[in-house]
């Protein structure tokens, strides 16, 4: 369903695993799906926007979580 929101927990994983998990979660989803990956790996803050650019999706933004992780959100196209 378009506009669906999905969250992927990638806390504790190091690069490139959070991005691999994000890509797996994106597979087969409708355009418009909002996908959030929660990471503790510092590289993900650079790599999620870069992944979105390289794969034609839109990076929405990042937010700190209460647990000290960062939640990075993309919208699939």
């Amino acid at each position: 369903m378009a506009g669906e929101a999905v969250t992927v927990d990638a806390t504790g994983l190091l690069c490139p695993l959070p991005i691999i998990e994000l890509a797996k979660a994106a597979r087969g989803r409708e355009p418009g799906t909002v996908l959030t990956v929660v990471c503790t790996d510092l590289a993900a803050r650079v790599d999620v926007p870069a992944w979105a650019r390289m794969t034609g999706h839109a990076f929405v933004g990042e937010k700190k979580t209460d647990g000290g992780a960062v939640a990075l959100t993309v919208r699939l196209r």
Binding site: C15, D41, A43, V46
Partner: peptide, 24 residues
């Protein structure tokens, strides 16, 4: 410049500054 190749596990500041993919 990938994070996993540095002792701090931080990605290269230069790659981050240009918005390039930092892993691999």
């Amino acid at each position: 410049g990938s994070a996993c190749t540095t002792s701090t596990l931080e990605p290269s500041r230069v790659l981050a500054a240009v918005g390039a993919l930092s892993h691999g």
